[in-house]
Design a protein around this nucleic acid. Structure first.
Ligand SMILES: [Mn+2]
Ligand SMILES: [Mn+2]
Ligand SMILES: [Zn+2]
Ligand SMILES: [Zn+2]
Lengths: 138, 138
DNA sequence: CCCTTATTGAAAATAATTTTCAATAAGGAT
DNA sequence: ATCCTTATTGAAAATTATTTTCAATAAGGG
């Protein structure tokens, strides 16, 4: 199990709440809020404290197992993420988020900005929005 | 004055609070929070209600005179923006934000993702982070 | 200077997030 | 299997962020 090994490697414990949060995230394709995770855990009969949801999300983000997605209005949804560097394209209809790798195509842009601004660039936030194939009919 | 004309054009009024919020935004190069704007207005002896700060930011965003910048941790800073489509690169040391135009260099990427995901892409969020020239000595 | 009406801001409601700390449970050791 | 140590949880409360209401105010055209 992914989660198990990553945690052990750092001397962290695989607890029930952590397992549940990760399961809920992995069973959802749209970015979801801490509230949503909390409510879902109740519905599944494995209720965990909302505080723990927040803490677990912080942890999973630090471990790069979960990524934060910024919305237009109400910010702060979370999606489970593949290890490595990925971005998301989010459907404005159904909310579904699909990962994509944007490293290559961004290098031209990054080089240009580096020259123009003289910044050292060490991070970026790239997120697309649109309409997914399923939502395009109707 | 920029603000004046944009407002008139839509039958909106140029009020004292709107003027102050815009001034504070334009005199700051880093993204700032509603709270910060509120406190600054107090310090300048032109205090405006926090509620009005929120409302004014919404308005200025709708008018494309101000743009929201998403941070890594605590989200939701605002910077004044040039009209048109721009993105920001934000210094992780001093917080300064500099605009850049990213439309061209993104098209290759967008086309690739369009093919791969079959999404209709109608928007994106691109923000870089790094260290500005001034903060590189130290 | 007057009127109309967009706009403000105090207050309170609502929502989001963090801090504290005693109780609990993981998982290595015996 | 049971014990121990300590990471982790979660209830409660504090803090912070944001929105809603509505009576009072002030833009700006006449
Ligand atoms: Mn990238
Ligand atoms: Mn762009
Ligand atoms: Zn969709
Ligand atoms: Zn800097």
């Amino acid at each position: 199990m992914e989660l198990q090994s990553v945690l052990n490697q750092k001397g962290l414990r695989l607890t029930q709440p952590r397992r549940v949060v990760m399961e809920i995230l992995e069973s959802t394709s749209a970015p979801i809020s801490p509230q949503f995770i909390y409510r879902t855990s109740q519905e599944r009969g494995e209720e965990i404290g909302l505080v723990t949801v927040y803490r677990t999300l912080d942890l999973l983000m630090a471990l790069d197992l979960v990524r934060r997605v910024h919305g237009q209005g109400g910010c702060h949804g979370y999606v489970s993420a593949s290890p490595g560097h990925y971005h998301h394209i989010v459907c404005r209809e159904c909310g579904k988020a699909v990962e994509f790798d944007g490293a290559q195509d961004l290098s031209d842009l990054l080089n240009r900005i580096k020259k123009q601004t003289h910044f050292i660039i060490d991070g970026h936030l790239l997120q697309l929005q649109g309409i997914c194939p399923e939502c395009q009919n109707g």
